[in-house]
Amino acid sequence: MQLFECPFCGLRSETEFHFLTEAGKQRPEPAEEVSDEKWADYLYNHKSPRGRTAEIWVHIPCGEFFILERDSITREVFRSIPLKDYEQLK
């Protein structure tokens, strides 16, 4: 079993976490100018990189949403970043 770090609760079992989506997607705006294609791309398409990834996860018991940086091949976990800090980091 792996331990992931919740920015609020600290290290917890991987079973308490839920993957939501890849990080870094920007919601296309303004809505009335967004084509169906662009919207579908935003909603559904993934980069699914091999290697280092940044993803949005939620820690189910406390409800904290955060960025989890990890490796999609080795499964190594690098770090967890609260969503509010992520924009500044980029």
């Binding site: 079993m1 792996q2 839920h18 993957f19 091999r50 499964r75």
Partner: peptide, 10 residues
Amino acid sequence: RIPTHTQRGN
């Protein structure tokens, strides 16, 4: 429940 590209289970 964790996206991965390796043929290994958790």
